[in-house]
Simulated assay, not measured.
Amino acid sequence: MATTTRDRLLEAGLSLLLTHGYHDLGIQALLKQTNTPKGSFYHHFTSKEDFALQVIDRYMEEVQRGLDVALGDPSLTPLGRARRFFELTREKYRQDGYLGCMLGGLGQELSGVNATFAARIEACFGEISGRIASCLEEARHRGEIPQDADPRELANLLLNCWEGAALRSRLLRDPGPLDRMLDFTFSAATRAS
């Protein structure tokens, strides 16, 4: 629960950036929604860009918590833990009305026009992929995926497929593309081992 003005602004920013994107994010609408004076916004953030970058950092805190929960579940196999992360993410998307991944949305909107956002978003995807790759390395050692598989490459492929499915899910406002991506990818991984 947001307790400080900065926290309230960042929490509102999560929803507004997901819903409206960066270019349609109005600072006035943000201030009105959070009942915050304009001076308070600029006390905490130097610009709209600084604000959006800090919202990305806040979003990544949520993603890291999801990774911790899923990848740290000792009741699941390593491959099961990797799938569980995507299932938990799908549930979050459902709660948000299938608006998809904020990183993917902002990446599509800004990566071609703003190098700062492109670098930050790619770094975030790298963090996620790295965590999944560690889990897939364990899956490789346990024989769940082929011994000659490259866990980092597989993690990147999973994330890339997921982001494409998230876009389609957003377009359709339906979990179908996410479900089919998970079923296909994880059944293919176990058939190959």
Rank of each mutant, 00 (worst) to 15 (best):
L16P: 01
F41K: 04
F45E: 05
I121Y: 00
P177G: 09
S40V: 08
T19N: 07
L171I: 15
A166E: 06
E137Q: 14
F125L: 14
Q64R: 13
P177T: 10
L30T: 04
L110Q: 01
S169Y: 03
G72F: 07
N114I: 08
A118I: 03
G97P: 06
G26Y: 07
R58A: 11
D148Q: 12
Q64I: 09
G13E: 03
E122I: 07
P175T: 10
T116C: 08
T5Y: 00
A192T: 06
E163K: 06
R8M: 10
F45S: 07
F41N: 00
L99S: 02
I27V: 14
D96E: 13
Q54K: 15
L182M: 15
A166V: 10
T185W: 05
E62C: 04
R58G: 02
S40Y: 00
T19Y: 01
R168E: 14
R120S: 10
F51M: 08
Q108D: 15
F184T: 15
E137W: 03
T34W: 04
L178I: 12
P74R: 08
L10N: 02
E61Q: 11
V63R: 03
A165V: 09
R140V: 03
Y42W: 08
T77V: 09
H141D: 07
R131L: 08
F125A: 11
C135Q: 05
L103H: 04
